[in-house]
Amino acid sequence: MTEATIYGLAGLAVFGLGLMGVLGAADRLRRLVALNLCAGGAAMVLVASSWRPPPAAPDPVPHALVITGIVVMVSATAVALALIRRLYSLETDTDA
């Protein structure tokens, strides 16, 4: 059992948990956090795929992909949060 297997499987488990969260959660914020878990899991699988047995250096390409993915995900999170804030303001204004 190599590091790649351990962390790769953990990444898949995290992705699966995130999937459950997205499908099962009712709350907007929680669903967004669950989506972030999915992203983390997918990134972990990619990083695990880059690992090589020690003397060899890891494959840098997945590392670059994951960095790109992290930046993309924070952008999407920020947009979703802006929508959540705006919706909350509008909903509380009309309900009150």
Binding site: Y7, G40, S50, H63, V74
Partner: peptide, 16 residues
């Protein structure tokens, strides 16, 4: 970091 991906680890801590 254990998977020898320090760049990614840095980006995750700071951004992710």
């Amino acid at each position: 970091a254990r998977l020898v991906a320090p760049d990614v680890a840095l980006a995750e801590v700071a951004i992710g």
